[in-house]
Design a protein around this nucleic acid. Structure first.
Lengths: 210, 210
DNA sequence: ACAAGAAATGAATAGTGATTCACTACTTCA
DNA sequence: TGAAGTAGTGAATCACTATTCATTTCTTGT
């Protein structure tokens, strides 16, 4: 016997894998899934094309993983906003705001996550992603109903509507056609667009004019 | 000179074009854009593959046109529902219901129109399609504000939220993963799903609990 | 240093389907 | 009927990239 995988090698492989993910992420964040090429990613990572395939089954799998990562990041932020002080409506409002503002700040990635056409495996992840948001909101709505600051309703259905209303409102501003028109480093805090989305959503939830 | 396009020929060509559209429509309604093949469509229309290209620039163009047609049909129906008697809220509610119920009745086409990944030109049409709905709703909302049965708000923004909330709520039930589970000839009138979507939407609009 | 194996390489391959185009068949009109 | 022009045909081509794999380079333990 002569070669056995050692800790050092394991680590190096893990690093390579990580680097691939990072570079692929970068590609996608820069111009979406559609135009991301395996060859480009490999070059960017300083690896040969074939090497990608030692770390990932297929391009689709790689992309699905990127999607999962990007998603996790977003969902975590929203979960965080949802975990602050205040009654359910306050927390939900903060969460919706977080969702919308983050999307407006990273429009290409947001668009890829929300609306860009993609391969089946990625689409699957997308459904999961939307469900993750919906679940988060659903829980908060249920809590709100218990605290009775939100009237009785089908929490799952309402959360789906929330996700839809926000996503749709963002598609216009996010879609690549509009890409150039967004001045780069805009803050998007207190964006009136975000305010009116949130007003609609909160009204839909509470049935209370604001 | 010997051959000049005559009325008869013009008509025959128009018919062929129409037939292509019909067959393509059928393909899409049956299994979506992704799996529709130019060759299949040609065969279905009783034409050679190449003939398709005498009538349409490219597959993308053909599909964009189908999308436009299908869209027009749907939008017209919603416009119709919006043109009935009653105050703005009543009419809007009827329109939303029409939108949702029609989608549930023709799930494959609805999914293609709402969510199926597609080529850029088709995606462009999709944006237009969603905007067409939004515009319709927007007008009704504005009317409602004048009639003061709907409180003051950004009508465009709200209409976008409506479209998003409905579309998102339908994606789950329509997505091909669920396809088999829908018993074929279900009525979808008084579907509780539709009711709760509509409740959310109308609350969002009016801020009035129902 | 060497043998045994693992990892990396990247040019060549392959699958997929849209699109082309040289050719045939048809239409028109004198 | 025949010349001129148009429509229809469909097998062959092309474009695009993901993926493969024979070969090379690197690691490891003796």
């Amino acid at each position: 016997m002569a070669y056995r995988e050692t800790e050092k090698m394991r680590k190096r492989k893990a690093e390579a894998r990580q680097r691939i993910l990072t570079c692929a992420y970068q590609c996608v964040a820069q111009s979406g899934f559609r135009s991301a090429r395996v060859t480009t990613i490999a070059a960017l990572a300083g690896l040969a094309t074939g090497t990608i395939y030692r770390h990932f089954e297929s391009k689709e799998d790689l992309f699905a993983e990127i999607f999962r990562l990007a998603t996790q990041r977003e969902v975590d932020k929203v979960a965080e906003a949802l975990a602050t002080e205040g009654d359910a409506t306050v927390r939900l409002e903060a969460a919706l705001r977080q969702f919308a503002e983050r999307a407006l700040r990273g429009p290409v990635m947001a668009w890829s996550l929300i609306a860009e056409p993609a391969d089946p495996k990625v689409e699957e992840e997308r459904l999961a992603y939307r469900k993750a948001y919906a679940r988060l909101f659903e829980t908060a709505i249920s809590e709100g109903m218990e605290e009775s600051c939100i009237p009785q309703q089908d929490a799952r259905q309402s959360s789906t509507c929330l996700v839809g209303a926000i996503a749709e409102s963002l598609v216009g501003p996010l879609s690549p056609a509009q890409a150039g028109s967004q001045p780069e480093a805009k803050h998007h805090n207190n964006d009136p667009l975000v305010d009116s989305i949130i007003r609609f959503c909160m009204q839909g939830l509470t049935g209370t004019r604001r």
